[in-house]
């Protein structure tokens, strides 16, 4: 099984996670720029974070045999913070042009404030200018209302829906998005917002067309193996290998390939890791022999 994991915050995961993911069939991870568990107080820490996800994190991932792509954005939570919001918007254009950046995101709504909407709309314009598909974070509280508001804003702007991925869906939101022509993303957590069992039920009911699943693993309680775990449940429920491949490989590839920034054929191979290599003097080996993994 080949897996494109379209939403994981590897920045806050350990190298063991990469290794387990590689063993479970993950060939590509996509790291959306997001909040880090606490607010940043200056644009400098955003810049360092952005440089990390196009630099060290990409290097670390490839050393484990997994391609690393990312999306860039001012996330909705920190869009509320005047210490950083405008300054981040100023540096975004250059980061949206980086080679491994295949989308704009996570933008969207979180607490559903006026400021969040302002930066959501401003960034949707950036998505058009840089010709990138868009990954939208939807609120975890008052979710249905948040979905409706996101959709209303997109319709207002006449945004091309084929370039939109509405993430963190659930049973209540999926009927809202099926007719829109956008991608629907499901983040599968260990036990709360969505789990592998419920995911299979949704897929049985709504099919796999325009659907994407991810683990959204980050610094919180989350499981980077939740996509392979859901695949196992799908197999047990009788889904065909072709359907599963479409869900966990072809759908995310087709969506993010709209960026024109990667060759899907290359992603089918593994990056060739040379663990003796270093990035800026930093090796992953910590004194081990390159052959010892």
């Amino acid at each position: 099984m080949r897996i494109f994991e379209p939403h994981c915050h590897m920045f806050s995961r350990v190298t063991d996670d990469y290794e387990r993911m590689a063993l479970a069939g993950v060939r590509v991870v996509l790291e959306p720029a997001f909040w880090l568990g606490q607010n940043r107080t200056s644009v400098g820490t955003f810049i360092d974070y952005f440089d990390t996800i196009i630099g060290w994190e990409r290097f670390r991932s490839e050393q484990c045999g997994i391609w690393h792509l990312c999306t860039m954005a001012l996330n909705p939570r920190e869009a509320n913070d005047d210490r950083v919001n405008d300054a981040v918007m100023e540096v975004l254009p250059r980061y949206l042009e980086k080679d491994s950046v295949v989308g704009l995101g996570e933008i969207g709504l979180d607490d559903q404030t006026t400021k969040e909407e302002k930066y959501f709309i401003a960034q949707l314009e950036l998505g058009k200018q840089h010709d990138l598909p868009v990954l939208i974070h939807t609120p975890h509280r008052d979710k249905k209302r948040g979905f409706e508001r996101c959709i209303a804003i997109l319709k207002d702007m006449d945004y091309p829906m084929g370039r939109i991925l509405l993430d963190h869906s659930n049973e209540e939101t999926i009927p809202l998005t099926r007719e829109l022509g956008c991608m629907s993303g499901f983040s599968i957590y260990p036990n709360t917002k969505m789990d592998p069992h419920r995911m299979v039920t949704i897929l049985q009911q709504f099919g796999i067309e325009d659907m994407i699943i991810n683990s959204a693993c980050d610094w919180g309680v989350s499981d980077p193996l939740n996509v392979p775990k859901t695949i196992l449940r799908m197999e047990l429920a009788g889904f065909s290998a072709a359907d599963i491949d479409k869900l966990v490989w072809q759908n995310p590839i087709d969506f993010f390939a709209q960026s024109g920034r990667f060759d899907p054929k290359v992603l089918e191979t593994r990056p060739r890791p040379d663990r003796g290599e270093t990035l800026d003097g930093n090796s992953m080996l910590r004194g081990q022999d390159p052959g010892s993994f």
Binding site: P93, R94, E97, K98, D99, R261
Partner: peptide
């Protein structure tokens, strides 16, 4: 120079 910073990442592409 701002335009340069935006143009630079796309050079190889």
């Amino acid at each position: 120079e701002n335009a340069l910073r935006v143009l630079f990442p796309g050079l190889a592409r």
